[in-house]
């Protein structure tokens, strides 16, 4: 039996999954805020992107982000594998109580896998995608706006993006409130409100990201 410490324990693995997940929820908010500049216009969006990548601290931020993603995925995968093994033989019929599991909570491993596939494609498409150039206020910079509008001119790409963002919304809708419970924060009057805020945030990110994709489709 391997030694039992915080990192090998059930609760430790859950708490690490939860804290990295919370960090990633923060990232979804920051990324969405940046994307909203698409509504302002091409120059504002491109200037923001240029500002980000020309700051040397971006490498530190990216390293932290990558570490959070990898840790979150590894810990969640370990927990899921153990949970499947713990169940053993499946029930012939299993009726849910209606007061426990939700679509979001049941599909966490699946929405997580969709997010992983999405993020890899997203990086290939955009971060490492075609390099167009534009000039804003005399500064030559990458024209990411053009690339974004180009991708979202394809309705199939928009459909896949919206599908992935619904998965994201479900994932964070359960994940946000679940992470607080895992860190021991549960209060009879605050917890029901936290659950509502968590679901509302899930809906907000799904609609926010998807809405911008649809907006870009109609820009064409």
């Amino acid at each position: 039996m391997p030694s039992h410490n915080y990192f090998t324990s059930s609760i430790g693995k859950k708490q690490i999954t939860a804290i990295t997940g919370l960090g990633l929820v923060g990232f979804t908010a920051a990324h969405l805020a940046g994307n909203l500049l698409i509504l302002v216009g091409a120059d504002a969006f491109n200037a923001y992107g240029h500002g980000l990548i020309s700051n040397p601290l971006i490498y530190v931020a990216e390293a932290i982000l990558l570490a959070m993603f990898v840790t979150h995925i590894v810990m969640a995968a370990l927990v899921t594998i153990q949970n499947t093994a713990a169940r053993g033989k499946r029930y012939y019929i299993k009726n849910r109580s209606g007061h426990g599991e939700t679509i979001a909570s049941m599909t966490m491993p699946y929405t997580g896998i969709i997010m992983l596939v999405f993020i890899i494609l997203h990086l290939i498409n955009f971060k490492y995608g075609a390099h167009y150039e534009t000039t804003v206020d005399g500064v030559v910079m990458r024209d990411l706006f053009k690339l974004v509008v180009e991708y979202f001119s394809n309705p199939l790409y928009v459909a896949w993006y919206v599908f992935a963002m619904i998965a994201l919304g479900l994932h964070v809708g359960h994940g946000l409130q679940s992470s607080l419970q895992t860190w021991g924060l549960n209060h009879p009057s605050y917890t029901p409100k936290v659950k509502m805020i968590s679901v509302a945030y899930g809906v907000l990110v799904a609609i926010g990201y998807s809405g911008l994709a649809v907006y870009c489709y109609f820009l064409n």
Partner: peptide, 10 residues
């Protein structure tokens, strides 16, 4: 060999 809680509340 029990599983981990994933906060379903079943």
């Amino acid at each position: 060999g029990f599983g981990n809680c994933t906060n379903h509340a079943e």
